[in-house]
Design a protein around this nucleic acid. Structure first.
Length: 569
DNA sequence: GCCGTTTTCGGCCCGACTGTTTTCAGTCG
């Protein structure tokens, strides 16, 4: 049982309790616990197995610790099952309709016996909703709109999908009348691998004019709200954007607040309270006196901390590290000297080897590794021994032509079910960088999958593991692995784990990167480019690495050519 | 239901926006 499955049970319980009209603080307690479960890296199942007390976790007390154990033991929660007999589960779906919260859902259920979106639509079309006390024609209209916009639960955008839209919107808003500054906050600023919506923050001479201009952005499908300082719209691609206009004097406090994460902000506010201060989105206050708020730096200084980079603001130890002045010196894109994973027309890449070389040189890289697929991978035409030898020849020619730029002979070698590489040793031993990668048999048991990967790591020719967990965000779950054992093997063998920068892979995730780093694992950050343009995906890998607390020294492709060659040997 | 350097009770973030109502409740972030 995974943490997020337990979190889902708590969230469901919270929804139903809320509709029932339970104490809102109790409801929040369940939600807080769910958030804790989602954000801690370690499975609570392991903690229980180790005999650890779960109530050490923030937001989890005696009662919830017991409920978690019940879920782990029985796979379900009696309290939730009981509640479902009282309140139809389907009512939850109504909560995700814009403008409908627990109170209104309760009224709709108790008066009109509406328990699903279809019945709700019927009732709205027959103008039954507007007759209810507290409801009116506008609400009815809004509900119909909300049903049309009803998003499936948990639809999030890949960071790389949101990025161009945010850039376009910023360019547009920079032309708004009287605009002073404009910036994206929220999970986008924290460079999270997926974003649910985008929070934008600006300062302006006449806020209402900017709001008006914002709602006229060409991609806007629906204006949800538009006040004097704040507006929410949904774009044609269903991405929601919130814009807030704030006073210049409050900008730092607002930026901190809207950048989040929620748990980070709460933790910072708690420190402020302990110091006799109060932080809100407008500033830092001592009694009634505002003492800071202009910049984020001022906000952090008020609680005696250095500025914490947005990528780290997840309440995963960054505040403690900041207090001890031990924040990592995070890696940057400029630290990268080369790319160690890419494909060419020798396998499933779109561009020739030489084009990849030229593009890498234009990026001021010192080296690349060309890593086409081995032929065992049935879905793509890969390299057999003969084709590999032909590629070696071309690489040697290009090395001469483009010296001192260096091209490593590499290969993305399929790891077979038994953990052996899908390429003969005779070829493997001629490679500088063989990356092991799993492309099949994703469903092996945790034990078998771990054994398979460790065997590959121990293979003397394999230097690193590409996209280690095999996940595709929103599409394919990560492999079942004993990650601790994987890290141990990587470290013992002096190998590296790849952080794959493809936007829908971003594999490893931030939590695993941090965990591996703490165990002394080295990483590569590589694009797995299948076209020369994708070499610029490196920035997404950097985002992920920063969220995983990596410094330059943790990453092998920040090293000079000489040092990297030594490392590979 | 959680939590504690005002501790075992009594707090728990709170302001903006909207719609319905006429001073406020519900929702949202």
């Amino acid at each position: 049982m995974q943490n997020r499955e337990i979190a889902a049970i708590f969230n469901e319980l919270a929804d139903l309790l809320e509709i029932k009209g339970e104490n809102p603080f109790k409801v929040r307690a369940y939600r807080n616990a769910a958030r804790t479960l989602e954000s801690i890296g370690k499975p609570v199942e392991e903690m229980v197995a180790e005999g650890k007390d779960l109530s050490i976790l923030p937001g989890i007390g005696k009662d919830l610790a017991e409920k978690i154990k019940e879920i782990l033991r029985t796979g379900k929660l009696q309290k939730l099952d009981n509640l479902k007999k009282e309140i139809p589960e389907a009512l939850r779906a109504l909560l995700s309709i814009e403008g409908l919260g627990p109170k209104r859902v309760k009224v709709l259920y108790e008066t009109l016996h509406i328990s699903d979106p279809d019945a709700l639509k019927e009732a709205a079309l027959h103008h039954e909703i507007s007759k209810l006390p507290g409801f009116g024609p506008k609400t009815e209209e809004k509900i119909l709109k909300g049903i049309r916009l009803l998003k499936q639960e948990g639809v999030r955008f890949l960071f790389a999908e949101a990025e161009p839209i945010v850039e376009e919107l910023i360019a547009y808003l920079q032309k708004a009348p009287g605009i002073l500054t404009i910036e994206a906050a929220g999970s986008f600023r924290r460079k999270k691998e997926t974003v649910g919506d985008v929070d934008m923050l600006c300062t302006a001479k006449e806020p209402p004019k900017v709001i008006d201009y914002f709602t006229k952005f060409s991609q806007v499908l629906e204006v949800i709200s538009a006040g004097t300082t704040r507006s929410t719209v949904v774009l044609k691609n269903s991405l929601q954007i919130d814009l807030r206009v704030v006073e210049k004097e409050s900008y730092g406090a607002a930026l901190h607040y809207f950048t989040g994460s929620k748990t980070h902000v709460i933790a910072i506010r708690q420190i402020a309270i302990d110091l006799g201060l109060k932080i809100n989105e407008y500033g830092v206050y001592q009694k009634e006196q505002k003492v800071a708020g202009l910049t984020e730096k001022d906000v952090y200084e008020s609680v005696h901390l250095p500025v914490i980079p947005p990528e780290l603001r997840e309440n995963r130890g960054e505040i403690e590290a900041a207090a001890k002045n031990r924040l990592p010196n995070l890696i940057t894109l400029e630290d990268i000297r080369g790319d160690l994973h890419m494909h060419t027309t020798y396998s499933d890449g779109m561009d020739t080897l030489e084009t990849m070389v030229k593009t890498a040189i234009a990026k001021n890289y010192t080296y690349i590794a060309v890593t086409d697929h081995s032929a065992t991978l049935a879905v793509v035409k890969g390299l057999d021994a003969q084709k590999a030898l032909k590629q070696f020849e071309e690489i040697e020619k290009l090395r001469e032509r483009y010296a001192p730029f260096h091209i490593f002979k590499g290969m993305e070698v399929d790891i077979l079910e038994d953990g052996s590489p899908g390429m003969e040793d005779d070829i493997l031993k001629q490679l500088d960088i063989a990356l092991g990668a799993i492309h099949s048999k994703f469903k092996l048991t945790r034990k078998a999958q771990t054994k398979r990967l460790i065997k590959a790591i121990q293979n003397p020719y394999i230097k690193g593991i590409a996209h280690p967990t095999g996940r595709l965000i929103g599409k394919r779950a990560p492999l079942e692995l004993d990650f601790k054992e994987i890290c141990k093997a990587i470290k013992e063998e002096g190998k590296f784990l790849e952080i794959n920068a493809q936007p829908e892979r971003l594999d490893l995730n931030d939590v695993l990167i941090k965990e591996a780093r703490e165990k002394g694992v080295k990483f590569s950050i590589a694009t797995d480019a299948h076209a020369s343009g994708q070499l610029s995906y490196m920035r997404y890998g950097i985002n992920q690495a920063r969220r995983g607390w990596l410094e330059k020294e943790d990453v092998v492709n920040t090293k000079s050519l000489e040092t990297l060659v030594k490392f590979l040997k």
